[in-house]
């Protein structure tokens, strides 16, 4: 059953992030893997081994691009050089969709190389959605945006994170990369129910799901990608699959990276959720029926920017 229009109507199964310590294993053993996700920026170069390895991977596997520095939420305009290189890589990989984060990270041309949290304001919704549309128009593949882990909230925020995310993707008419680990991390750091978040976002836009491990500290949780997926995150994943139907799923493991087989085995734990959803005939039940999916929408008033909110059925507003 095809998931949705934001991932090209494909059912990708379970992938893992392509990481350097695994290059040799993958190229020599050619393990069966549904797909690999690459960090776009690490291959946006003019030549050399990164592209040689990528081309060898592309001969055998499907590759999806995941970016870390487009910074849709930065007030700065988009970086043309970045866009051009990204598009060139998109042509090389044939990625069916392109993801990056709902965050900011640069200002006045200076880059933090971090995924900094957004103030959840209407101004930010407008700027972010506009930039996503610009990127989507330029690269000519569906763009999907990922919710980030965060450790701070702003006084000026006018809505919740899940309301903000929903507003942005609806206005940009883009897909979502739902990172259930990030939802969990932020729920602990900001004390909210992660299922409230998960149940709110428009399931029909979820093109991909991320799972990952994190590190607990005494007073906060950090999204370190250096552990197996925790049970609480698997529970969120199960609910996400229940809502969205079988969806392309990707395990991120970026630090203290174990063997390829360990990483792949951890990722494949997702298979049982996907299979049970498929056998139960769940193909994005809520996304197709829109029974529970709601979005927060601005009340349209001519010439004014209203901050009044109302809940509206997805079907009624699109």
């Amino acid at each position: 059953m095809p998931p949705n229009r934001f991932n090209g109507f494909t059912d990708y199964g379970v992938g893992i992030g392509l990481r350097i310590p695994h290059y040799q294993h993958i190229l020599s053993r050619k393990p069966v893997v549904d797909w690999f996700e690459i960090i776009s920026e690490n291959y946006m170069v003019d030549g050399g081994r990164p592209l040689e390895i990528l081309d060898q991977i592309l001969e055998q596997y499907r590759v999806i691009q995941h970016g870390v520095s487009m910074y849709f939420g930065s007030a700065d305009p988009l970086n043309r050089e970045h866009l051009k290189r990204l598009k060139s890589l998109v042509r090389r990989t044939g990625t069916r969709w392109l993801s990056d984060h709902l965050c900011w990270g640069s200002v006045d041309g200076r880059y933090t190389h971090d995924l900094l949290p957004m103030p959840y304001t209407w101004e930010a919704v407008e700027i972010t959605a506009q930039k996503i549309r610009q990127v989507q128009d330029f690269v000519e593949v569906p763009v999907v945006v990922e919710n980030v882990s965060s450790y701070a909230e702003f006084h000026v925020s006018e809505m919740t994170e899940w309301e903000f995310l929903t507003e942005v993707v609806e206005r940009a008419d883009c897909g979502m990369l739902l990172d259930v680990n990030n939802i969990y991390v932020s729920s602990k750091n900001h004390t909210f129910d992660p299922f409230t978040y998960l149940n709110f976002v428009p399931a029909h836009r979820v093109a991909q799901i991320h799972i990952a491990g994190h590190s607990k500290f005494e007073k906060y949780i950090l999204d370190t990608h250096d552990h197996p997926v925790l049970p609480a995150v698997w529970r969120l994943y199960a609910r996400a699959i229940e809502r969205c139907g079988p969806t392309a799923t990707l395990l991120e493991w970026d630090d203290n990276i174990p063997t390829f087989d360990e990483v792949h085995a951890e990722a494949l734990k997702a298979t049982k959720f996907l299979k049970s959803a498929a056998s139960a005939g769940l193909a994005g039940i809520e996304s197709s029926s829109n029974e529970n999916a709601v979005i927060l929408s601005e009340v349209p008033r001519s010439g004014t920017k209203s901050k009044d909110l109302h809940l509206a059925e997805v079907g009624a507003t699109r």
Binding site: H113, D114, Y151, A152, E153, F154, H155, K219, Y220
Partner: peptide, 27 residues
């Protein structure tokens, strides 16, 4: 304190500090 909300475990300063440290450690 002017821009970041505190929570029941961390002050505004401490929350901002997480990002400050993360920036430098990464670079």
């Amino acid at each position: 304190e002017a821009i970041i909300q505190p929570n029941d475990r961390l002050t505004s300063f401490e929350r901002l500090e997480i990002y400050n440290r993360q920036y430098w450690f990464r670079l």
